[in-house]
Every structure is written in structure tokens, then in C-alpha cells.
């Protein structure tokens, strides 16, 4: 019985984890790192974007609709998708020359 409970707990906890896939992106010197992230298709995905610069940045989708200001030295969670497979570019609008990134959906 005990083992069964533990097993059940395991199953539920892994499904909870699977339901929320998260990816970390950092911004430093007005650049995304990693600048290319592969995310699964047809699934809502959480991006944790941590801005390590002292200045604010605006995360903006180029091929998808999204706009979010991330203040300096802070983190923001951004939900994206579900997307069809393909390339989805995004930029940091406040420093568009350097802050470029792409979500590769597979």
C-alpha cells in the first residue's frame, strides 16, 4: 500500500512537471543567452527571462504576439505557445541591435 502511494505520488509529480516545461534565458550586456532555444511544439511553455543588466528591457515577439517589460536585475516569467514547428524570432525592443533571439519549435 505504502509503495503504491509513493508510486502514485511519483506519477502525479512527474505529470505536474511535464505540464509545465520551463526554459531559462538571461539577458546580459543587452544580449540573450542562449540566443537560440529549442522548445517543444504544440505545448504551452514557460520562459523565465532574467535580466542581469541594470537597465530595463522589453521582450517582444517578432513572429508571435508578445510584449513584456523586464526591469533591470529582475526576472519575468513569460508563457508562450502552443506553436506549430518553425522559427519564432524575438527581440529586446530597447536594444534591438544586439538583443535578438529565436525560439526553434520542434
Amino acid at each position: 500500500m505504502k509503495e503504491l502511494l509513493i508510486a502514485a505520488l511519483f506519477v502525479t509529480s512527474t505529470t505536474v512537471m511535464a505540464a509545465e516545461t520551463r526554459f531559462d534565458i538571461s539577458i546580459k550586456d543587452h544580449m540573450f543567452s542562449p540566443a537560440e532555444i529549442t522548445i517543444p511544439a504544440n505545448q504551452r511553455v514557460k520562459l523565465i527571462v532574467s535580466n542581469e543588466d541594470a537597465t530595463p528591457e522589453e521582450f517582444e515577439g517578432e513572429d508571435f504576439t508578445l510584449e513584456k517589460v523586464i526591469p533591470g536585475n529582475s526576472k519575468a516569467s513569460i508563457m508562450v505557445g502552443p506553436f506549430e514547428p518553425g522559427r519564432y524570432e524575438f527581440v529586446g525592443e530597447f536594444h534591438e541591435d544586439t538583443a535578438k533571439g529565436v525560439l526553434i519549435v520542434k
Binding site: A54, E58, V69, F94, H95
Partner: peptide, 13 residues
């Protein structure tokens, strides 16, 4: 508010 944040970002950079 976005303009203020952007301008702050610019002056601080």
C-alpha cells in the same frame, strides 16, 4: 511608463 523606462535605460547605459 514605457517611454520613461526606455529613457532611463538609455541614460543609464
Amino acid at each position: 511608463s514605457e517611454v520613461v523606462l526606455f529613457m532611463y535605460s538609455v541614460t543609464a547605459s
